[in-house]
Nucleic acid binder design. Structure first.
Lengths: 118, 118
DNA sequence: CCCTTGCGCTTCGCTTATCGAAGCATCATA
DNA sequence: TATGATGCTTCGATAAGCGAAGCGCAAGGG
């Protein structure tokens, strides 16, 4: 472990206020964080399997992200690999509408291509 | 404008599949993206005001993020500044449960300090 | 006993993203 | 004409992310 993981109530990158939602935006705005939560919500996974599921994620970043998530109490390492905590499951649940939204987004972007790609 | 903004249906950082939700995770996983959406959802804002609202955000990154969001059709520049599009407003709405979740998170983290800070 | 295989990570040199002070062109008001 | 606001760019410096290699450990053959 090394760098400070964002925690509510404490100033984070981009916000001195310590407002919980800002800590959340900091944590989730780090690369791979949401993807890892996403994958873990489907099924628990060990380090190496998680890496396989997130194609191209570097082991070093996976390691620090798992530290982040562990410090934030959203995930924890068990005998069968990393699992979301109840809090982590709630977060994924809060993020769930993203999936439906992204399909709407895809539709709307599909209609009129943004000036490249034939 | 310069780099490719993530779009659904096209391979993005961390996923070759083009699944819409992966494009969304890529876009939202870039620093400041969600924060900007958050701020714009409260009120439209011009470039410099937006920068003021997002304390410490560098102008160069704000510029590229606004390009990203514009290319993704989530925001657009009007006479009175940047505004969310209807699609952008939907996204913020999909993200709204985060706020409530983060308060629960704050409670749970407040209970037992994570082994530093007296 | 090795020997291989899988595990959870770490290390480290390289590339990319982000930072932030400075500046540019433009418009409005004084 | 000068002052201050706007929307951005530029560019050198720092931080974050990358990925191949490797470490120490444990389990399962041969």
């Amino acid at each position: 472990m090394e760098a400070r993981a964002p925690r509510p109530g404490v100033p984070v990158r981009g916000s001195a206020s310590g407002r919980p939602v800002m800590a959340a935006l900091d944590l989730l705005g780090r690369r791979w964080t949401m993807r890892i939560l996403w994958e873990l919500s489907h099924a628990p996974a060990g380090f190496r399997e998680l890496q396989r599921r997130c194609e191209r994620m570097s082991s070093s970043v996976l390691s620090t992200r798992l530290d982040d998530l562990t410090a934030a109490r959203l995930a924890a390492l068990h005998d069968d690999g990393y699992r979301l905590t109840p809090l982590g499951r709630d977060l994924v649940e809060a993020l769930a509408p993203l999936s439906a939204w992204s399909r709407r987004w895809a539709e709307e972007m599909g209609d009129a291509p943004p000036s490249d790609q034939p």
